[in-house]
Design a protein around this nucleic acid. Sequence first.
DNA 1: ATACGACTTCAAGTCAACTTGAGGTCAAGT
DNA 2: ACTTGACCTCAAGTTGACTTGAAGTCGTAT
Lengths: 140, 140
Amino acid sequence: MKLLDIGEITERSGVKPSTLRYYEEVGLIQSITRHGLRRQYEPQILTKLSLITLAKAGGFSLTEIAGMFSEKGQLQIPREQIRERADLIDEQIKELTALRDILHHVADCPAPSHMECPSFQRMLKASDRRKPAKKKPPTK
Amino acid sequence: MKLLDIGEITERSGVKPSTLRYYEEVGLIQSITRHGLRRQYEPQILTKLSLITLAKAGGFSLTEIAGMFSEKGQLQIPREQIRERADLIDEQIKELTALRDILHHVADCPAPSHMECPSFQRMLKASDRRKPAKKKPPTK
DNA sequence: ATACGACTTCAAGTCAACTTGAGGTCAAGT
DNA sequence: ACTTGACCTCAAGTTGACTTGAAGTCGTAT
């Protein structure tokens, strides 16, 4: 199976050499051998990089992403964790959807002051329900 | 109209005092006055903080968020920009959806090696179409 | 044989977004 | 009058994810 050198990986994945080296340094990917000094990669690394890029776009940290791969480089997460992550992403999708809807509203609503527009307020409130606990009970 | 002091803002918004001070430092929010040393805020700041929190969750930088507010603290973005932002968010939602679907697949597909599973590959390819341009045309 | 260009290492730098710590101030309760 | 607790300032530190720069090494084309 033919190997690809770092330049080719960069070209085909859009990930810079410096970034690839950094990913290797932190143990996220490995180069399989060297040609002279040049790192050589197995073609599968491209799949892995797609996955990494995608997960980053989803707001996962490199550490979290690293945790999604087993030693052999396979995706290997206990099912339970996968569900958790999927739920997290759903959460995020909802937030983004709320934000988008708010923007649309702002674009279309001719009210001079959105801050006081009731439907604007309503949308914001709806997005607030995932907040840290408030301490004050309605005491008194 | 009664003012809220920083502790109350923290309690009701979930945003830490240090963060509020930081936001003020970078010009994202303002405290309206002081009670002794204590910052006092107008209640509307809570709406603004909701919006900030939401936008942050949407991956916007503080600088970008600051750009969404006019001097008076109102949301004020040219319609064209709003559409752009909304499209950006849609983009992100698509990415997240792809990621979630991949995770679901991984959770359900009993194949030993996802990396080679064709439907896994297909999903990844689908998420790749937003990549930087490749230089190599099929020359030769 | 040599020059070229694409890589290499390693340390240091950068950026955003906060957080922490030391030392200080203030108003309200006892 | 004094203590307390919640705030204050300001500088420095932290984290994550890279990037940059200087100095060096190779394989390949000429």
